[in-house]
Simulated scan of single mutants.
Amino acid sequence: MQGIATCNCSDKWCFGYKGQEQNKRMGNALSQPCIFPEDQQIWCKKVIRLWTAEGFVNAIEGKTIEEVANGYLNELFNRSLILVADRYLDGMPRNFHIHDLMREIIVSKAREQNIVTTICRQGSRTREKVYRLLIQSTLDNVEYSEHFSRLCSLFVWRLMDSLPITSLRELFRRGLRLLNVLDLEGTPLETIPDEVFKLIHLKYLGLRDTNVKMVPKLIRKLENLETLDLQGTYVTKLPDEILLL
């Protein structure tokens, strides 16, 4: 692999930069794609929007946040840390994937630094503070924990059964007030729980490929919302309140 060096210190990322801040920035950027299922092509625009929502992108004078984020992505491509899967007609990368060996390194580092916590079976418990939570296969018996009090991102993917809406509501009701990202892509969700609209810090709401049919007027309460992904849903009309965001 080009451009990556190992590091004896488990709490640091090392990519050959002299500055620790640059190494940390690249580590944060790489840790985001590792939450996607193995062997899945990853949409570049989605990763950029998630980086922005999670605060990984630093503002640079004279550039938009999206331009800065695209620069991060190009840097990862140039160092062969991620690989282009396909391109748009204008030649710009559309999707990318991660080499298996590189993915193992990223996942290992993310676990060491408690960047991502994954729950993929019933009865799973967390023992330390959770900042980014990925729930796979089941939401049954996932109970609110004091370790979720600083949770910034919640991803619920690849559920094997129906989405227990009561479990989801209980998570929101008990806390998660700091949540910036909520991604429910591919879940059998039919109605957006009212509790979602109390997440005043939410910047990214992913409902792609769900069974959602409408977006309620309560959407106006999400004043910080930057991305609302409704592709593949049954939503045909948005409320006028969306213009207030």
Rank of each mutant, 00 (worst) to 15 (best):
residue 23 N to D: 11
residue 81 L to V: 08
residue 186 G to V: 15
residue 103 R to H: 11
residue 74 N to K: 08
residue 114 N to S: 11
residue 139 L to D: 15
residue 19 G to K: 10
residue 113 Q to I: 05
residue 133 L to E: 13
residue 149 S to D: 13
residue 217 K to C: 02
residue 174 R to E: 07
residue 192 I to K: 09
residue 154 L to G: 06
residue 33 P to N: 03
residue 112 E to I: 04
residue 215 V to M: 08
residue 95 N to H: 08
residue 22 Q to Y: 05
residue 144 Y to W: 14
residue 194 D to L: 09
residue 218 L to E: 15
residue 110 A to K: 11
residue 172 F to P: 09
residue 187 T to G: 10
residue 140 D to P: 06
residue 79 R to A: 15
residue 222 L to P: 12
residue 110 A to G: 04
residue 39 D to E: 06
residue 109 K to R: 05
residue 146 E to Y: 14
residue 12 K to N: 04
residue 65 I to F: 13
residue 17 Y to E: 13
residue 210 T to K: 00
residue 11 D to H: 08
residue 238 L to A: 02
residue 174 R to A: 03
residue 177 R to C: 15
residue 153 S to F: 01
residue 214 M to H: 11
residue 97 H to R: 09
residue 138 T to N: 04
residue 194 D to G: 01
residue 3 G to V: 10
residue 76 L to K: 08
residue 78 N to I: 04
residue 193 P to A: 07
residue 97 H to S: 03
residue 116 V to S: 00
residue 58 N to C: 03
residue 151 L to N: 14
residue 109 K to N: 06
residue 53 A to E: 12
residue 240 D to W: 03
residue 227 T to G: 02
residue 149 S to H: 12
residue 28 N to M: 08
residue 5 A to L: 04
residue 89 L to W: 05
residue 153 S to I: 00
residue 53 A to Q: 11
residue 19 G to H: 07
residue 18 K to W: 09
residue 130 V to F: 00
residue 9 C to S: 09
residue 78 N to H: 06
